[in-house]
Design a protein around this nucleic acid. Structure first.
Length: 588
RNA sequence: GGUCUGGUAGUUCAGUUGGUUAGAAUAUCGCCCUGUCACGGCGAGGGUCGCGGGUUCGAGUCCCGUCCAGACCGCCA
């Protein structure tokens, strides 16, 4: 038997017991005539002690040979510590070593396996299996485990059934780029890995599995971010015989359950809701962070006609009120201005107005606006003495997006984005279609199976861009946690939709014929949603990056630096797959 | 495809205006230490300054290219 206990469970009541532990050496503290070892496993740390004249010379000799991260088995007696450590759960006791067996030696690890490691991201990624030994990473993966377990528990209690769907499917032109897999048995043909199990879950509805879910890997071959991996996990759900309200309530229940069980966090009342149009109007984003206010104020009509060319020529002028920021120095304001002028934000400039404590105003455009004019600005933005108003102007869509960046930036600066505050928000009534300049055609904003709102159907031929969809997202803290829609379950409407998206009849049949055929055999009304599981867990854990919530993530070039993937294939393998590879510049 | 930041000891970083022997902390190794738990003390070893080219009497430092990493824009729901 390798062990009788783990390193996290021994307490004062175990004093006097003979135990055996098998674990890793965290640290060795050699104080001459007495040596301590911190033994670490997944469950905690237990201190081992070896004292000259108390334990055998063999133990003293063995302990000299140990180093960090050695795997050892230690047998001995649990004794009470002379000096206890109240910071440790096992701090009242220690293991008096009577026999030490070396199970495996270890090279010195390239970074310290501690909560505050000395290792940078690169070295930790390369030695991910060592990084995973560290508490902060372990706790994140444990949270992930807990959330997945509680998801299954909750969905099971409300009659959802987990069904697996295939990973080797067919490439479709809509949406993200597909990862593809060559088929050896069908030369020149390729599978695609699913961007989501979308069509399969709809087919399951046709099959009568009226409450389906799956915690499932999805694949998208697009460029990565801190919150985007090429393979990621969704909680994918679909329900039959439901309206939008049913879906929202069901999954609001899931999110509440997860926060209660995994974060001990209770949400009061229902999640707030907002239409897509309102979200863009007030926050310039379809996933507003409503942990703080600082809503947009449209100043266009107020500021025009005073001879200030930039505002006069702008389509839209927006303001936000950074409360109590009038103390910002010119230097600080310039820094914010530089920030919005970075190419990533792309504003041409920023105008500010301070509301002084005596109620007078100071702006960067005093030449054009007198105190009476500026008073109107203050009134519009509800600014009080001590506040700072920031204005951006330009093309409506652009300025909204820039102001969103600025608002979030100011929120960060002012510490208004506390990761332990959770602000969920349902965003409703997304547009059905989105005009794409490059291809000069409409794209499905959500996906091509999303149903239009019946009350907007009259616009579908004349102004398709104005048709709203039965589509919804759950945003939290400025992150899109998930989204879904009520689907089309009618063959004619689905065909019309494909037509709007620029598919010919033949293309639609070739790509989605199976789904349209299925709709001819009694498709129930249905809808659903999917949560980005990695993002959900990261948000619950208070992180912006999903990487530490994935055991073996890829870097921002889509590489796994530990196993060094992707990698070239041998000529034999390529042959077998009937593939020729174009020569690339990069050396192997 | 693009923008920005970084790459110096095993690791994390400092390195001034270009100047002669490239530092600190930590880790490692050795010695000392009977209550440590970030143990402490003394000492030692440890460098292709990412790579290639250029400017210069002289380059870690300046210039060009390139590779790698991170964040972001485009892209992606």
């Amino acid at each position: 038997m390798y062990r009788t206990h783990n390193c996290g469970e021994l307490r004062a009541e175990n004093i006097g017991q003979k135990v055996t532990l098998s674990a890793w050496v965290q640290t060795i503290r050699d104080k001459g005539n007495i040596t301590w070892i911190d033994l670490r496993d997944r469950y905690g740390i237990t201190q081992v002690v070896a004292e000259h004249g108390v334990v055998s010379d063999a133990v003293i000799a063995d302990i000299k040979k140990l180093g960090r991260e050695f795997v050892v088995q230690i047998e001995g007696e649990i004794i009470e510590r002379h000096s206890k450590n109240p910071e440790m759960l096992t701090g009242d006791i220690e293991l008096k070593a009577e026999k030490i067996t070396l199970l495996n030696a270890s090279k010195t690890p390239p970074f310290t396996i501690e909560d505050e490691t000395d290792g940078g991201e690169e070295i930790r990624a390369k030695y991910r299996y060592l990084d995973l030994r560290r508490n902060p990473v372990k706790e994140k993966l444990q949270l992930r485990h807990k959330v997945s377990l509680e998801t299954r528990k909750y969905l099971d209690t409300v009659d959802f059934m987990e069904v697996e769907t295939p990973y080797l499917i067919k490439s479709t032109p809509e949406g993200a780029r597909d990862f593809v897999v060559p088929s050896r048995m069908n030369p020149g043909e390729f599978y695609a890995l699913p961007q989501s199990p979308q069509t399969f879950k709809q087919l399951l509805m046709v099959s009568g599995y009226d409450r389906y879910y799956q915690i499932v890997k999805c694949f998208r071959d697009e460029d990565l971010r801190a919150d985007r991996q090429p393979e990621f996990t969704q909680i994918d759900c679909e329900m039959a015989f439901v309206e939008q309200e049913d879906v929202l309530n069901t999954f609001e229940g899931l999110i509440k359950h997860l926060f209660e069980t995994c974060r001990d966090h209770k949400f009061e009342g229902n999640f707030p809701r907002m239409t897509y149009a309102e979200a863009l109007e007030k926050y310039g984003s379809d996933k507003p962070d409503i942990r703080f206010g600082m809503e947009f104020c449209n100043m266009t009509d107020i500021v025009k006609g005073q001879g200030f060319g930039i505002f006069d020529e702008a389509e839209t002028v927006l303001a936000i009120n950074a409360e109590q920021c009038a103390v910002y120095t010119r230097k600080q304001i310039d820094k914010v201005t530089d920030w919005v002028k970075r190419p990533q934000v792309g504003a041409k400039g920023m105008i500010y107005m301070r509301v002084n404590e005596d109620g007078t105003f100071k702006s960067s455009v005093d030449k054009f606006y007198d105190q009476t004019q500026l008073a109107k600005w203050a009134e519009a933005t509800n600014a009080k003495p001590g506040d700072l108003i920031l204005l951006l102007s330009g093309d409506d869509l652009k300025v909204r997006s820039q102001m969103n960046d600025l608002r979030l930036h100011m929120g960060d600066e002012l510490g208004l984005r506390n990761p332990n505050v959770f602000a969920p928000l349902w965003v409703l009534d997304f547009p059905l279609l989105e005009w794409d300049e490059d291809t000069a055609r409409y794209h499905a904003m959500h996906h091509p199976f999303t149903s239009p709102k019946p009350e907007d159907m009259h616009l579908i031929d004349t102004e398709p861009g104005k048709v709203r969809a039965n589509a919804y997202d759950l945003a939290m803290n400025g992150v899109e946690l998930g989204g879904g829609s009520i689907r089309i379950h009618n063959k004619e409407l689905q065909a019309r939709m494909f037509e709007l998206l620029g598919f010919s009849d033949e293309e639609a049949k070739a790509q989605f014929g199976f789904l349209m055929n299925a709709f001819e055999y009694g498709a129930p009304p249905h809808g659903g949603l999917a949560f980005g599981f990695d993002r959900l867990v990261a948000t619950m854990g208070g992180s912006d990056s999903i990487r530490d919530y994935i055991a073996f993530p890829k870097n921002n070039s889509g590489r796994d630096v530990m196993i060094d993937s992707p990698a070239p294939l041998a000529a034999d393998q390529l042959n077998e797959l009937s593939l020729d590879v174009k020569k690339t510049e990069k050396p192997a």
